[in-house]
Nucleic acid binder design. Structure first.
Lengths: 239, 239
DNA sequence: ATATGCAAAAATGAATTCAATTTTGGAACG
DNA sequence: CGTTCCAAAATTGAATTCATTTTTGCATAT
């Protein structure tokens, strides 16, 4: 058997493949090399194909009949729609959270917020993003609604696939930090309506920034299926 | 081959199974008889199991390791959470719809509303429900956000699985109709904030009603897995 | 030299086969 | 009479096999 045991197989496979897509190991537009992955994971095609169906249902890959699986490419419209939905989900989550969040949970978020402010001050973007994500997830957690958390995670993963980490103008970054001050404030005051409004605006602003930045800065050109391929042609003669 | 041709197989299978679950042909808690369904649909286990994985990812069935698939049972908490999320999604959809809905679309919704009022007046619950659903879907459609529509459809399907059609007190029914008057009004005025608020309240009220009514009135007792089974015991001797 | 056509190779979709776990039926025992 | 244990049957999870479609490589014709 494989070195990792076999107690999971299907679920692990789905999670692993999803991570590969979300983290950009399989860039948007790439064909999913079924046989390679089978070899890599040391499983047969059956569980792998089951995993592909699930990921297709989640919107991460497209299944073209008789033409294999491709990592879906996000259009500008997709990104805008996803951010809109994320805004709605986070607004709801924030509102619910205000009604039931504990002081301990707030303290934890406050600590994350302080850490994030530090990273903002030293212009450490990846660290800032990691903490930013943890804050938003903590608020969702505090909503107490598992269904909501699940959908948010789904939408978040789809958004995260567009790796727009690179471009973040300083003025926009400062603005985002200000918005987060407002988020923490509203949370402390348990002001659900205000928190919801700020979160929605926050996501809307983020959407604008991402779209304006092009949001696809780090796709691998080699993975572009639109690139023309030569067929049955050798290297041109040198002399 | 089968009488239905084979151009679809997988997708059709998923849709068909999902419909069977949502429509209550496979009641909550029932084991999904894999072999029977294979015979019924005239397919092998491979595509059927792929469909089961997808439905599991959508939350319609639970996959117990080595113990088969079961149609998920909705707890009271599940219902409350699903209605909360649905309220959030519909609020967002209504808000977006107000910003872009056309007069023609409003006219169509107004017509549906009038029809629904008729059914309300004559106390025809199933017809009322059908029109009610079409109205909510039309608003979502008018939002212009495909991602939102998809998630709403997913959540809606999960809610619809609890068939609570039976119990609807008249006073609550009248109240729901009033709320729908408000919905139509806000839509005509393109008042997104108000529409969002009404929709959220509408769904919250519906949730309360459904939970209070028990929301599981028509589950088949024979499908209850909690029922104790006898093992290796014959009928007791009569004399 | 380029374009067209055809056969070989590869990839996909689904059925079948195989191994392992769980459930069932009944026999032995207390 | 009830309980426990074990073997047989059924069910599940995964690998392999088979048929079909698509893609590729090369030969041929214009």
């Amino acid at each position: 058997m494989g070195s990792a045991g076999n107690a999971m197989l299907h679920d692990e496979l789905v999670a692993h493949l999803r991570a590969m897509i979300v983290d950009g190991v399989l860039p948007p537009g790439t064909r999913v090399p079924e046989r390679e992955l089978c070899a890599k994971f040391e499983v047969s095609r059956t569980p792998l194909r089951e995993a592909l169906k699930v990921l297709a249902a989640e919107g991460h890959i497209a299944l073209l009949p008789n033409k294999g699986a491709r990592v879906t490419r996000l259009t500008t419209r997709d990104v805008e729609e996803l951010f809109q939905v994320s805004g709605g989900l986070e607004a709801l989550g924030g509102e619910l959270a205000c009604a039931r969040i504990t002081d301990a949970e707030i303290a934890e978020i406050r600590a994350l917020h302080a850490e994030m402010a530090q990273e903002h001050a030293r212009r450490a973007l990846p660290a800032y993003y990691a903490l930013n994500r943890r804050i938003h997830e903590a608020i969702m957690q505090a909503s107490g609604n598992k269904v909501l958390q699940g959908l948010y995670e789904q939408v978040s993963a789809r958004i995260r696939r567009a790796r727009f980490v690179a471009a973040m103008p300083f003025d926009r970054w400062d603005q985002a930090m200000d918005e987060h001050e407002g988020i923490l404030n509203a949370l402390v005051r348990r002001d659900g309506a205000t928190l919801a409004a700020i979160l929605k605006q926050h996501l809307s602003n983020k959407s604008k920034q991402v779209v304006e930045a092009g949001f696809a800065v780090e796709v691998d050109a080699a993975a572009d299926p639109a690139a023309p391929r030569r067929r049955g042609r050798r290297t041109p003669p040198a002399g």
